[in-house]
Design a protein around this nucleic acid. Structure first.
Lengths: 207, 207, 207, 207
DNA sequence: AATGAATGAGCGTTCATTCAT
DNA sequence: TATGAATGAACGCTCATTCAT
């Protein structure tokens, strides 16, 4: 957690620091990101940085928590009680919420994507230790339930399929990361529908 | 490209250098990889390194080109004349060849996977600029042809689907990157079949 | 000297600051001790610290003066009129008082011991410049008098012997600095007697 | 151990570096000593320093090993077979050798003295782990043997006495550390004799 | 062709102290 | 009087690259 000194700063200053931090972590992974660059770009002194944050990790984890917080705003009813809704509806909404989040928070999305790609790093393990819900295990449970309900074919490999859906979903969001912010929501939804169609064709129980 | 001085070296020396480089780039991403470690592990002097290679990038790109070259050896007949074979057969073989390559060249595979994860980096862009065939554009053409032949449903989004197949394929290889070398080929093939089943269900023309 | 602002503080606040300072200087030598830690642990602001004290040195020297003041409380009659008592009695009491002081003021004792170890440092010189009485010159005078009285052999080197007695005494206190607070007074006295026996054997006039 | 690169340097350059290092560690304890100062004073770049030495500790331990090596030159026959000689003769020679070493290697002596004073530091523990002979346990064994032989009174506390002799000896060497190099050997020997007289009077078996 | 010494910018981090409010 | 934000130099250490020999 940043120190009180950070939260006591003027909104404007906090803003400048966060912008500089987002930019740096968006363009570099955790190790490569430079505190030096952040302090230069935000116009504060190095000494000040360490009065606001414990260390580099403190800032990074704060950013990640902000991201999680922001993501929560995109949660839909079906995502909150996933087992009471159709499987395909649930993952459609998960993806949709992911897309909307990415559209409106492209920098956070990029940082998150970066982290997801560095699953061997210490920082990844540390963050995921407190944020387990993010990983693809969720999909496994949903799939299992969906098979039991007869929504999904029972000859699939649950683990493998969960992983694939997770991968596709992540890719859907990060694929056109530069463009996503400028794309019309309608177009994104269209893309999403196509992806959903693929998945549905791929695993839905033909009855 | 490495300088002539490198190619004039004894096979043995070249070998040692390449081994050290592979090891270093396997364990670290481009930025984090250390020339220091490479020269130490290969027993050459710092000065020699810079007489063999322009710089770090030169070595890295050379490695990547070697990887492409090695991958070629796994090409099957269906991959060479892809338009004369069934679409699903072709991508099955592409994936199979990818898996076999990974099995027998785990270091190259890891380096390649690393690169794929940092698609924003300068180095990625530079490499992909000269190696377009590797990217997912290939799948686009195959898909178009497959639709024309009636193998694949014509209501799919070609670009999107190509990307998804590419992503799934890459993930199939990298998912168990540590285990892949010790896994029986039969098991890998089994996984592959499951993935293929998904794709086929997803996009095959039901006739 | 601390500024007036310090002495005007509530007893409670002064107390908290002194506790934090003692703790910090007990655990770190002068250079390594951190003002940051002291202000955090005493709950005052950085700015306040510099309104109470000139600087780090000001606080440290104040602490040292307090120590001297506290030591005075352990002075015995024989120590006040040393020339009217037996030499060995006097130094026995000096050591005993030193041990008792250490037992009841372990933090001050540790800080003092730390200082004694860095006799080359600027801070040491500065403190000893104003506190000469603490040093081993005292022993010289006592020894001279004892020789005149015939208590001590007249073939010893006064300066050297004074220094040795001083060193042994300091060592007696600091040797078991961690344990001293938990050791029974009786045991400490026993140790003291052994040391006194050594000294006495070493320099007493055999008559 | 310093790297080969260091040993390959010109004698002159090595000299300059060692001089700067000795000076820095003579004036500051391990933590306070600054690599920056050392590189400035020896006229090399920071990068070069780390090509010669693993890190700060590497240089320091190298210095300490040099010191031990240099000390060995002062060892006398009685010190090599201490149990075959009179106890007082042995410790006289130990102290004499210590004095001579200090006279001719005042910087090393100061650094060693510094270390001895910082027995809680990590670096002390690390160095003493490989150099156990330095500590005062040696005196315990010698004392025990001397008591058995009847040279020393049997009513002394061995542990305490060993510690005191060690302390006195160390102090004898470090006491006039600045002056020792300019003092005539004869005067040093005289001082030593006086100290020996004290000790002998203090613990020798009177018959 | 081969060497390896030399470099200096960069890293994250800590510090005592100042000063406007 | 009290605050706490701001500072910048210093710390140990790593790096890719250059260049004289």
């Amino acid at each position: 957690m940043p120190k009180d000194t950070f939260f006591n700063l003027s909104e404007e200053k906090k803003q400048k620091i966060m912008e500089a931090a987002l930019k740096e972590f968006e363009q570099n992974d955790y190790d490569a990101a430079s505190i030096n660059q952040i302090v230069i770009n935000s116009g504060i002194s190095k000494g000040s940085f360490y009065q606001y944050f414990q260390d580099k990790k403190d800032l990074y984890i704060y950013l990640m928590n902000l991201m999680v917080e922001k993501k929560l705003k995109y949660i839909t009813p079906a995502m909150m009680n996933p087992f009471e809704h159709s499987f395909f509806e649930v993952i459609r909404e998960m993806n949709q919420s992911g897309l909307m989040f990415a559209r409106e928070n492209p920098q956070y999305m990029k940082i998150g994507t970066r982290l997801l790609k560095d699953q061997n790093s210490d920082i990844y393990k540390e963050i995921m230790a407190q944020n387990q819900d993010q990983a693809y295990e969720v999909y496994e449970q949903l799939l299992q339930h969906a098979i039991a309900k007869g929504e999904v074919r029972n000859d699939i490999d649950v683990k493998l399929t969960a992983r694939i859906i997770f991968t596709i979903s992540a890719d859907l969001v990060s694929s056109n990361s530069e463009l996503i912010a400028e794309t019309w929501p309608e177009n994104l939804i269209q893309q999403l529908e196509k992806v959903m169609a693929l998945i549905q064709h791929g695993i839905a129980n033909p009855k």
